[in-house]
Design a protein around this nucleic acid. Structure first.
Lengths: 212, 212
DNA sequence: ATTCATCCTTGACAAGTGTCAAGCTTCTGG
DNA sequence: CCAGAAGCTTGACACTTGTCAAGGATGAAT
């Protein structure tokens, strides 16, 4: 009896703790999402905890209840950002039935994200640069970079498959190429260069058959 | 007579002013160089004027004698940085008499600069990211990016010429590819990945014949 | 209804920031 | 040699920063 009661109590305790953890984590993500807004607006260098709090429903003290310090918060942001972006093209990859369809779907998503999520993209490049100075970011950043490389590779593989060929480059080179082009287009787009997006699309359209 | 004297006096005045300007500019560059040291060490976000001054032979007040504000200083740094790096491979390009010679010379310089000047390179990526947030940097950054693209194009053109062919990609795509590969290798190198540099060299050696 | 842990706010702290004015030193032209 | 300009230092300013402790609100369990 006593043993059973204890066991039940323990199970309850474990369950409630798990629930608390879940709630705790949910709030962490909520705060991280709010932080991402401000980070995307101002960049890492100019973003303070107070500014983040002001653009959220909370006050600046909360962040020290949910995060050990500023680095912890930003690491959480980076990790959360990752989950949202590495699946961007997956639907196109799985549904496309021809090279043309895949190309058009890919280019459409590319143009859309460059247009609509420019602030998140520039934040990514900002944080990746920070990782070159701040060791605490490196692990997460390198992991995301690998995920993005895999994402590009899925597109290239499928493109090759639809033409009955094999990609002509390594995953690393392919990713470097797309990332470089995207980064350059993003900078030009943010500098109000209206040719940035169309020229990126042209370049990618021309490149796809030669490298995949 | 009066006219001549006035004319001579004016010439002298003009000359001395030019001299002063030159001295003034020399000091600006000296200060910018000191600033680059600290910026390369700490990154844009963590670098303060006092920190820069402490790592130099001057005190923090000087910077407001020579620069209107912090942005002005950093813009000067960026511009100065440019001049030093866009000619990095030019000697190799002009002296190489064969594809092998050019390849080996290029790869050697690539490895050397990644090893020895990693801090300057990460600063460049940092500042290029800053330009996505801070409009004041954009003009200079875009200009440097163009110069770097031209630098890569000189290598590719010469490589093609030495084999009697034409480069198979656009200058923009080629630069994006090399920049992406370099950036990724730099991050890995800074994360103490010893395979970063050799793998970059392998990748570039493999790529050169297929794209140039 | 009371108690107690959880969640969040508030206000304060020390340290650090860019900026600038006042004044010291050094150099230069007369 | 000396006056005045140029170059540089010093110290102060207003403000922002991350951090944290004290305490109020909230909600669940007894």
């Amino acid at each position: 009896m006593a043993r059973q009661a204890t066991g039940a109590a323990q199970r309850v305790a474990v369950a409630t703790e798990a629930l608390r953890d879940e709630k705790f984590n949910a709030r962490r993500i909520e705060l991280a999402e709010a932080a991402l807004e401000t980070l995307g607006e101002l960049g890492f260098a100019r973003t303070s905890l107070r500014e983040i709090a002001q653009n959220s429903a909370f006050t600046h003290g909360v962040f020290h209840y949910y995060f050990s310090d500023k680095l912890d918060l930003i690491c959480c942001c980076v990790r959360h950002y990752k989950a949202k972006c590495v699946t961007r093209y997956d639907e196109v990859v799985t549904t496309a039935q021809s090279r043309d369809e895949l190309t058009n779907g890919f280019l459409a998503k590319l143009a859309a994200t460059l247009q609509d999520e420019a602030r998140m993209h520039r934040l990514w490049y900002d944080l990746r640069s920070q990782a070159m100075f701040e060791a605490a970011f490196r692990k997460d950043v390198l992991e995301i970079d690998k995920s993005l490389e895999a994402m590009i590779w899925r597109i290239a593989s499928r493109y090759a498959e639809l033409g009955g060929t094999k990609p002509a480059s390594s995953p690393a080179a392919l990713y470097a190429l797309f990332d470089g082009l995207f980064q350059s287009a993003l900078l030009r787009h943010l500098a109000d260069d209206e040719r940035a997006i169309p020229e990126l699309l042209d370049e990618v359209r021309r490149l796809l058959p030669t490298i995949c």
